[in-house]
Computed example of a mutant assay.
Amino acid sequence: MKTFLYFALGLMMSSASLAQEIDNLITPYRPKIAEFSMETLREYDTSTSSESFGSADNEVERDRLIKAKIGIPFLIKENWMFGIQLKYYQHQFTLDLEDQPTDYDLYLHLNAKKFTSTGIRTFYQRDIKDNQQLRLIGGAELKSDQIKWNANTTKYFISSTYTWQRSSRTQIGTGFVLNQVMGRTVFYPLFIYEKQLTPRWTLDLTLPKSAAIRYRANERNFITASADIRGWRYNLTNALEDSQRDLTLRKVDLQFSLSWEHELHDWLWFGLDIGYTKNLQYHLANPGDSSKDALIDIRSKDATYTKFSVFIVPPRKFYR
């Protein structure tokens, strides 16, 4: 069972960095092995502009994202491990078409469809030397309003990180992310820095994606303040009457949040996040095109954010 714990710790490094154990009497922040969550943005205005398709305004009454994911180990050896993570996300928009009726194709399509992001990622971790680790993550996802697999609806990705322990309280690392997503190649480097500031406070940086400071109130409660760059892409099928083909809807936000994680029963936890989201980029384009070649530019007002989650972590006894 201890090897399963090591696998879980490594697998979830793709989405969250780990706090360091101060001594044998303190249980560190435990990563999520499986999670179910619901995220909601409420009541924000949007406006569109396009030379070809015109302009329109509307209000998004609810922007809801439901997530489910689970990690599964397959091969675990003394100094390396291999496993997979399965995910399923469903994204739905509800627009104010009663008070603001519209015949704008994009708004009608967003209101009528559910968008799915589902896929698999593989995980490999090897201990290179004492206090040094190499991690490789790769996978494929379908991101679309219809279940169809082609170059316009899929994402393939690989990520690698190399981390080392500089001291008992400090871990640093570097790496990269390479995505082939809906006809577009995206590459960026990663810098990882984790510092145990005090027995209760930890600083976690995964730049340029996220920055967080975590407070351990006690072994059953953690509070985290964070800033994250978050985004998504979906394929839209025949969304515009005058453009019956696959198109890519792309959104990037800067999200500030405050989260509380509370232990319900050792390995079972509950999470509540509240925050504020500022839109950085939003557009509809042909697959592979960037924002400067967008068919429709979209402006989205700032919005408040909430998230409720239930998740599973490794039991506390494995840390004793």
Rank of each mutant, 00 (worst) to 15 (best):
D23Y: 07
Q85R: 15
S159H: 07
D228Q: 15
E219I: 13
E51R: 13
D289G: 01
V60Y: 10
G71V: 13
K195I: 05
F311D: 08
P73V: 05
D45V: 06
R135Q: 12
S259R: 12
S117L: 09
N150S: 10
E241F: 13
P31I: 13
I147Q: 15
L97Q: 08
R184W: 01
T116P: 00
D63T: 03
E263R: 09
R184N: 06
D228F: 01
Q165N: 12
V186L: 10
K113M: 02
G139Y: 04
Y29F: 10
L236R: 06
K209G: 01
Y6H: 13
W267H: 08
F222D: 14
K113D: 01
M12I: 02
G275I: 12
S37V: 07
G71N: 14
R216E: 14
G173C: 04
K32Y: 08
S47R: 07
D246V: 06
S309P: 09
G288C: 11
K143I: 08
G138N: 07
I120G: 02
W260P: 00
K317W: 12
M12H: 15
Q165H: 10
Y282L: 06
S49H: 10
H91F: 02
A112Q: 14
T237E: 11
G173F: 00
R250G: 03
A212R: 14
P189G: 02
S210K: 13
T163P: 03
A225H: 05
R233C: 06
E61A: 06
S159L: 03
L178H: 05
N111W: 05
R316I: 15
H109C: 00
L268K: 08
K2E: 15
I296D: 04
Q20F: 11
F308Q: 11
